[in-house]
Write a protein that binds this DNA or RNA. Structure first.
Lengths: 356, 356
DNA sequence: GTGAAAGCGCTAACAG
DNA sequence: CTGTTAGCGCTTTCAC
């Protein structure tokens, strides 16, 4: 097919005895060129296996037809799906993806932002570590459209897509209540992000609407860790430990709403070890609907997050922002769906008298 | 910090009344420049928030300090970890990552290869769809070092890292045999890739060494699907269906070795529905040691694949190839580890007489 | 329709 | 030590 050096417009121009310019126009489909010439050029380009040099093109155009994608951790199934969704939609519009993994580190995040800047990306899609806004303000400041995913940085006023975490947690909690739970506990990661605040708010709202108390100790933090172990079952493990402590309490909750489905796994194990049955002794509601959750026993009731949709929406918002930079940045919350499975019913938790 | 347009070397040169060249050298740390001048330039660059333009730099250098990463499906936990591993190591060496997702499509793969070529990547790390070698031969042909991951394309003679699938399957099978299994079945994806051939070979070897027969129907194909559903629990679901059929056989195997831990999930469900106990009625051995596998009940005995290590090794091989293009391309198989858990013991399958 | 010239921002080669 | 010149491969004026 091809070997050796890459051919350039100039090569083609030389062999065809045309100007570089003509060849460029012929190939780029612009008009103002003879049909014959165009065919000729196309044929020659085909023959030598011409591959345009994006670098050169981008340099003159000032932008690289590339999106930066900054993600905290691909081993989180939500982000894995997100990557797929974004990649698909971006590629459909002709953009490549420059990927950076921050692992919740502000330092890595800052470097990633800088790197995107150097690379003249056409835009950035970011799951911010959420702590520093500077790196992203800077990026936006020099005119790189940026959309935030999952965790908003309201100060920036950038476009944003996320799932409605408050709603998700509300649904989860309300469902547990409807199934007879009166005392409910929440397990969340200990990250200082709006995601988690929102969920806790949703939980509280559901409890309040049902006139149920939320005593101290109803919201439990699960410590998390950094990248090196991200690959490992660190999250279930940590949740397991926290759950074991929880199960030593004198009064156990009827239901536990957890921050992600990995936590549900850890909780399952702790409950199993204590000989407690799900949902009979305790209901469990997950968050995320990871690929395995449907297949656990008992299968896990969980809040399904539309990761693909979040991803493709992010790309759409970015394209909007690129096409009309002065348009009002849109913020979009995508509603999650509660998926009801065995872990919340139909059994009635023991603290309630059977109703039927 | 900065606002408006990006500053260039020329801007700095102008305000400092120096030549562009001098500024370039001052900033790039080359020698042959006065300490005073250098400090001056550095200070000014800092002041205006100078960000080098990688595009321009890459154009003249002919390579973009970027690796192309081509992956079939990020929702596979193995690849998710792989991405992390590669990203980390690549970034440590100053390379960015251009990501492409092929979802096992030869067509997308071909486009991805083309795209990397246009982008003048310094190298490529590829999980090939395995069917066509052309796209990668072309890439290598024009001098882009390429390393293959997980699925080798021996015709190309490129560097390769993967896990020793034959060994993994051998270990899994031998373990089941050691635990008393005599009749063993394998469930694998129906992809035409060496990965799977190797595993089946490993399985056969273990069986042969134990003088156990491998009747027809011992290797079962699980149909798979494309990207759109990759995010969804498609693999457990398909394995579940296949497993249901398996369980209708007159004689059930003592153990099932599956191609990935998702399959084990599907199998678990089918067994559960049939009232069969793991490992008592049937042992299950997974492949991959996904983050959830340790936390299933029963916890899953599985072949752990060192995804991170495969990833970082891939980067190392690529760097080797970049530094010494004429060196013999290395092929490296990383040994997986069998992780023994509840799903294979200590109970004895019913077809065997208890030994102790 | 096509060509010539200029320039994107940077680095490399060679002067001075 | 520093400046000048040239050029990476492409697109965009602007002539002809």
């Amino acid at each position: 097919m091809v070997e050796g050096r890459r051919h350039t417009l100039r090569d083609i121009a030389a062999t065809l005895d045309l100007s570089v310019n003509t060849v460029s126009r012929a190939l780029s489909g612009k008009d103002g060129i003879g049909a014959r010439t165009r065919a000729l050029v196309r044929a020659e380009a085909e023959r030598v296996g011409y591959v345009p040099n994006t670098l050169a093109r981008s340099l003159v155009l000032g932008s690289a037809m590339t999106f930066g994608l900054v993600i905290t951790n691909p081993s989180n199934p939500f982000y894995a799906q997100l990557i797929s969704g974004i990649e698909l939609r971006a590629r459909a519009h002709g953009y490549s993806l420059l990927l950076a993994v921050t692992d919740e580190s502000e330092e890595i995040e800052a470097r990633a932002a800088e790197s995107l800047l150097r690379s003249s990306v056409s835009g950035a899609i970011v799951v911010p570590v959420q702590g520093k806004v500077d790196p992203w303000r800077r990026l936006g400041g020099v005119g790189v459209p940026t959309v935030l995913i999952n965790r908003d940085l309201p100060d920036l006023g950038y476009p944003f897509v996320g799932t409605d975490n408050a709603l998700g947690a509300y649904q989860a909690t309300a469902h547990a209540i409807a199934r007879g739970a009166r005392s409910i506990v929440v397990l969340e990661e200990d990250l200082p992000i709006t995601t988690i605040e929102d969920r806790i708010a949703g939980f509280r709202r559901a409890m309040a609407e049902a006139d149920l108390p939320v005593p101290r100790g109803s919201v439990i933090s699960v410590p998390t860790r950094r990248y090196e172990e991200a690959a490992l079952p660190w999250q279930p493990e940590q949740a397991y430990r926290v759950a074991r402590r929880l199960l030593r309490r004198p009064a156990l909750p009827d239901a536990v709403v957890v921050g992600n489905d990995y936590f549900a796994l850890g909780l399952y194990r702790a409950l199993h070890e204590h000989g407690l049955k799900v949902p009979g002794d305790m209901m469990v509601i997950g968050f995320g609907d990871y690929p395995f959750s449907e297949f656990l026993s008992p299968s896990l009731t969980t809040v399904r997050l539309p990761a693909q949709e979040v991803g493709s929406t992010a790309v759409d918002l970015l394209l909007e922002q690129i096409e009309s930079p002065d348009a009002e940045p849109r913020k979009q919350l995508i509603a999650p769906t509660l998926v009801t499975r065995e872990s919340t019913g139909p059994a009635i938790p023991r603290s309630r008298i059977p109703l039927t």
